[in-house]
């Protein structure tokens, strides 16, 4: 089992021990630094990289936002279409989330159908937002058999670690800036988009990589190449809303508890970023 690069590298070709030389060099470099108590960009273990949220970058979409988390860049776009409800929730709109690891984002990404890594990314982001009941789906009900279908597409434009938190922020920021089309004569009127999408909660996530027993918040690309395992904690500040442990290694219970505490304590800081981009 190769280490680290869960969101990074689709399987391709043959490799020595499934890990190429450059990853071993990066990994050794990160571990050597950590043994002296430093990260490659001099951050503390509990620091996020610089966060920049740019809302409304795609005016054709009903909502959008670009997030720069260090050198990682993610664009989320929201489209809202007229559609049918799910059978078991006839009075509620629907939400569908997907993610694409675009081949222009990394030399390791390839064109083609979504990789398991892209699907995991979309599902983890979706779980946090869905479990946090962020989107008021009852408010998306129009009339018998007609509701709004909300589509959130996460477009990874540049990979350098921690796609989970960048994507959670991008999706949330896009939703917070989404306007629902008017509904007239049984049709969506996209030229009249004034009603903000009704949200009831704000969820953020914090992802940790474990490298030689160090828990690193917001791992960058090299740190993901070096890590043995990973945990994503999504929270609204009061409750945990989603967890996802990834990759081959393991955590002990105390480590999990520490990361959960850290994630909850980081929520306010992330929420401030989201609110200032509203």
């Amino acid at each position: 089992m190769r280490c680290g690069t869960s969101t990074r590298r689709p399987q391709k070709g043959t490799r020595v021990n499934n890990m190429d030389a450059i990853d071993i060099v990066k990994s050794n470099y990160i571990k050597e630094l950590l043994s002296k108590g430093i990260r490659e960009d001099m951050r503390k273990v509990s620091d996020f990289r610089k966060i920049k949220i740019t809302p409304n970058v795609i005016q054709n979409a009903e909502g959008s936002a670009q997030v720069d988390l260090g050198a990682t860049r993610v664009l989320a776009g929201v489209k809202i279409d007229l559609g049918e409800p799910m059978e078991d929730t006839p009075k509620e709109g629907t939400v569908a989330m997907s993610a694409e690891l675009l081949p222009l984002a990394s030399a390791d990404y390839e064109a083609g159908p979504p990789s398991p890594e892209a699907i995991e990314l979309a599902r983890v982001v979706d779980r946090g937002i869905r479990a946090g009941a962020c989107i008021d789906t009852a408010d998306l009900f129009l009339e018998e058999g007609k509701v709004w279908n909300v589509y959130v597409d996460i477009y990874v434009l540049n990979y350098y670690g921690n796609l989970f938190d960048a994507s959670e922020l991008a999706a949330m920021a896009a939703l917070m800036n989404t306007k629902v089309p008017a509904y007239a004569d049984g049709k969506a009127v996209r030229t009249d988009r004034s009603k903000p999408l009704k949200l009831n909660n704000i969820v953020t996530s914090a992802t940790f990589a474990k490298v030689d027993g160090h828990m690193l918040l917001d791992p960058d690309g090299n740190e993901e190449a070096a890590c043995s395992t990973r945990l994503t904690v999504a929270t609204d500040g009061k409750k945990l809303r989603a967890l996802q442990k990834g990759l081959g290694g393991s955590f002990n219970v105390k480590e999990v508890e520490e990361m959960v505490d850290m994630a909850m304590s980081k929520h306010e800081e992330l929420k401030k970023h989201l609110e200032s981009a509203r």
């Binding site: 795609i58 054709n60 959008s64 776009g77 489209k79 064109a111 589509y151 597409d153 996209r190």
Partner: peptide, 19 residues
């Protein structure tokens, strides 16, 4: 060469993903 349109790129309905 890959040319692709984002599913949120048009003012119309949500597009299909992939080329």
């Amino acid at each position: 060469c890959r040319y692709a349109m984002a599913p949120f790129s048009s003012l119309e309905e949500h597009g299909r993903t992939g080329p």
